[in-house]
Amino acid sequence: MNIIVCGSLVPDPLQTLEPITGPTGPALKNEMMLPSWLDPWAGHALYEASNLAAKNPGSKVYLVSLGPKAKLQQVMMTVAQKVPFELIALDGSAGGFTDAAETAAAIAEAISAIPGLDLNNTLIFGGWESASRGAGATMQIVGERLGITDQFEGVDSLEIQADGSLKIMERVEGGKHQISVCTAPPAVLGWATGNLPEPRNNPQVGMANMRGIMPSLQKAKPSPVTTGDIAFASVSLPSQTRTTQVVKDVPPDQIAAELVAWIRG
């Protein structure tokens, strides 16, 4: 089985972000200088993919990443230590303001170009949303472009059953999971958190991965994704900071009474 994970990079969540107007629309101030991470939900997808591959000998995990080549290289140094995969790098913007449809088109094209890929033996994984655009749109469009109409979003678990069917749990409203069975691949799965902790660094895996990662980065296809037809009227940081009243040295009884009045009020 092939498991193709779509995932790119996002700015470190602890960084303060500031929007600026760039030549092609909104962008982040010092975008190329900001430390980046593997997009968290795509990261969960990658760890789940690796876990699934380990349980199904002969499986192969690909990571398709569209991002600025130089930044991808930095992020891959860390990601490569985690789990084995073959990188397919695409050189273009990973910014949040680009149009998901363009990103999806570039990713779908890269997947279609994998030599000898049998889609009927392939699962397409990604995060159910990025931490940049935060739209939850890319994976579905990738699926449509590849002709895959068995799609799942907000996935927290995938089990391959004895008959080869896929049992999938997706997040739905009210803290529930919907359980579906899909008879066989191909399928698109946008992962939420899943069930696996972040794998520990494994230097051997890192060395093996890096042998493929460097050439992949070198031949990364330029993929100029843009904001498409979006006209941004404004991009702003939330202005509302509250005036925090810090209440100290007040006995618990009094705080409790105040809180209960507030809760009931």
């Binding site: 996002v10 700015p11 969540p13 972000l17 929007p19 909104p26 949040g96 303001f97 931490a131 940049s132 655009r133 935060g134 979006i230 006209a231 941004f232 009227a233 404004s234 991009v235 702003s236 940081l237 939330p238």
Partner: peptide, 10 residues
């Protein structure tokens, strides 16, 4: 955008 870190009108 950026998981509730900035708001855009478009």
């Amino acid at each position: 955008f950026y998981r509730q870190r900035m708001e855009a009108v478009f």
